[in-house]
Amino acid sequence: MSQATIGDSEFDRDTAVTAREPGVYDAELSAGWTIIQAVNGGYLLAVLGRALADTLPHPDPISVSAYYLTASVPGPAVVRTETVRTGSTLSTGQASLYQYAEDGTEVERIRVLATYGDLDGLPDDVRTSAKPPAIPPPEHCLGTADGPAPLPGSSAIIERLDIRLDPATVGWAVGAPSGKGEMRGWFGLADGRDPDPLSLLLTVDALPPTSFELGLMGWTPTVELTTHIRCRPAPGPLRVAITTRNLAGGLLEEDAEVWDSADRLVAQSRQLAKAPRG
């Protein structure tokens, strides 16, 4: 099977939006991106990201903050966008994704405020103390076929991702979580499509939740997710490191870093999520 390309892949087809009128887009949320009970939050962010890229004069997401209001389900959806501000190098917009209740009324699922720019136009000066995560080579990491049966419910998204987890962060899979709240691994799309700024919105929310390594299994619904896209990723696999330092009041944070094959920090995120009850 030939490798999928940017613009011609399952991810691109399943995040496509169709303009109905200015600022109103139709979408079809695919069941292929569900895990346990819900449509993945990073996939939803990519759907909204496409609509905002069409609305705003700048092409690339730079900072995207999303509030998850109600759980999304596979099926039709409507995205409504609005331009908030347009500048010479950055523009800001907002978007909401709606689905339909049984009585036909619209239910807002997710609301986003985002700033877009042109990643190719950013200065190339880098001053950083950040270092790529130390992860064993992919052949020494563990894929989905190496673990136990998935959690109850849909795990369709797993078939669309190529994730190889650092063995040091998969104790949860054999009933021996480390308690450290860390998750690290290699990430790619299963069809070989290379990463781009839009797919990074999926990447930051695609690994198993760090709560698994805290001994809490089950759905970890996102309350809020802010993602920063730092530069256009090079072709090839990504390395993702996620940490949680504080679980309190039934909520935990997840701080993610995404590094590309050229050892550049290409995306960062912070997520607030509800801790599983397990």
Rank of each mutant, 00 (worst) to 15 (best):
G192F: 00
V170A: 13
S199P: 11
G181K: 01
P177C: 07
R193Q: 15
G181F: 04
A206V: 00
L200E: 13
L189Y: 00
F212I: 02
A190H: 08
R193F: 00
A190Q: 11
P209E: 06
P209S: 12
S178N: 14
P195D: 09
T210D: 05
W186C: 00
L207I: 10
A176C: 09
G175Q: 15
S178Y: 10
T210A: 06
A190T: 06
W172M: 04
G188E: 07
L216H: 13
D196C: 03
G185V: 03
F187D: 11
V204S: 01
L207N: 12
G185E: 02
G175A: 15
L165K: 02
S178V: 09
P197D: 02
L198D: 15
D166F: 07
L198G: 13
D191Q: 12
S199N: 03
A168E: 13
W186P: 00
L214R: 15
L198C: 10
P197R: 15
P209L: 12
T210F: 04
F187Y: 15
E182C: 03
V204Q: 03
P167L: 07
F212G: 00
A176H: 15
K180T: 05
A206C: 09
V170S: 13
A206Y: 01
V204G: 02
P197K: 10
R184C: 07
A168S: 14
L165W: 12
T169E: 14
W172V: 14
D191V: 01
A190C: 06
P195I: 06
D196K: 00
P209N: 07
S178D: 15
L189H: 01
P177T: 10
L200A: 12
L200Y: 08
D196Q: 05
G175F: 15
A190V: 02
P195K: 06
K180F: 08
L214E: 12
V174K: 14
P167K: 05
L207Y: 11
S178W: 10
P209I: 01
P195C: 06
K180P: 07
L198R: 13
L201W: 13
W186S: 03
A173G: 13
A206F: 01
L214G: 02
P195S: 05
R193D: 00
W186I: 05
T210S: 06
L216P: 05
A173P: 08
M183F: 02
D205L: 02
T203P: 02
L165P: 01
D196V: 01
D205T: 03
G181N: 05
D205K: 07
E213P: 04
P177L: 10
D196G: 05
G188P: 07
E213M: 06
L165H: 15
M183D: 00
A190Y: 05
W186Q: 04
G185D: 04
L216C: 05
D166Y: 11
S199A: 06
L202V: 03
V170F: 07
D166A: 09
P197Q: 13
W186A: 02
G171W: 10
S178P: 12
R184I: 00
F187K: 03
D196M: 02
G185T: 01
F187G: 10
A206N: 08
L202G: 04
V170G: 09
V170K: 04
G188D: 10
R193A: 09
V204P: 03
F187S: 03
G171Q: 12
S178L: 10
W172H: 14
P195M: 03
D196A: 07
P195F: 04
E182T: 10
A168I: 09
L198Q: 15
P177F: 12
A168L: 13
L198A: 14
